[in-house]
Amino acid sequence: MSRADDFERQGFLVLPDFVPAASCDALKARAEALVEGFQPETVSIFTTHEQTRTSDEYFLSSGDQIRFFFEEGAFRPDGSLRQAKALSLNKIGHALHDLDPLFSEFSRTPALAALSAELGLRQPLLLQSMYIFKQPHIGGEVNSHQDSTFLYTDPPTCLGFWFALEDATLENGCLWALPGGHRVGLKKRFVRAPGGGTAFRVLDATPVPEEGFVPLEVKKGTLVVLHGLLPHKSGPNTSPKSRHAYSVHLIDGAASYPLDNWLHRSAQMPPRGF
């Protein structure tokens, strides 16, 4: 059975040893250098919990920028950090793949171009990227979600490439996926609200099944490919080990990208392919 057949059947692929360990280490070192140079004038906390999702301007204008987002558990009640800055961040987003040469090189390889074509993207565009820290002890839980909720096209074409830069285990908050769940249909969209801020627009109120998720424990260098409609999640990291990962989300340029999507890019930096 081909990779495309596997992907169509279960909605995800797990491809071990897709990236050399040295490339993982180089990306981690570059992320550490970016964090070192980050002086937090604006504190933005990233969460996937709907009732507390940050919709501030720092977040909403990050589609064509390199921005830094803190963990919910990083701060003391008085607003000071509980630990060092480098151990307090949730992620960096959302245009690393366009604005940083090393991240661009990592994200744009012949192997990834071939894989995106194999999985059906006719005009692949790299729309969004995130460096995810999943910090020791405070790495937050990510609720079950579909990537097409946040990166919607008509028809849905979102494709996620998630790279394990360190081993991902049950203890440090590995991914969980619902095999075949990409066939449940898109449940909601995350859009810019007419009066400012953001909102979830419900498309189908039928809940996603809570049972049947499987853990994706993977080794460093593994690529996990996620269908945009696939429900997936990750648990909190309560272990002393981090779980660094890097993800790139692609869409098909042949599809329509609605203006009310939360992620906007300037006309000077439209999404581009490989």
Rank of each mutant, 00 (worst) to 15 (best):
S144M: 09
S144P: 04
S144F: 09
S144E: 13
H145D: 05
Q146T: 07
Q146K: 11
Q146H: 10
Q146A: 09
D147T: 13
T149K: 08
T149G: 11
T149H: 03
T149V: 08
F150Y: 15
F150V: 13
L151E: 01
L151M: 14
L151F: 14
Y152D: 12
T153Y: 08
T153C: 11
D154S: 14
P155K: 09
P156N: 12
P156Y: 09
P156K: 06
T157D: 01
T157R: 02
C158I: 10
C158T: 15
L159A: 09
L159Q: 08
G160C: 12
F161Y: 14
W162I: 03
W162D: 03
W162Q: 05
F163V: 12
F163W: 11
F163L: 12
A164K: 05
A164C: 11
A164Y: 02
L165S: 06
L165W: 04
L165H: 05
E166V: 12
E166F: 12
D167L: 00
D167C: 06
D167N: 08
D167T: 04
A168E: 02
A168W: 00
A168H: 06
T169K: 01
T169Q: 01
T169H: 00
T169F: 01
T169A: 03
T169W: 00
L170H: 11
L170G: 15
L170F: 13
L170W: 09
L170I: 09
E171F: 00
E171D: 11
E171H: 04
N172I: 00
N172Q: 04
G173E: 00
G173T: 01
G173A: 03
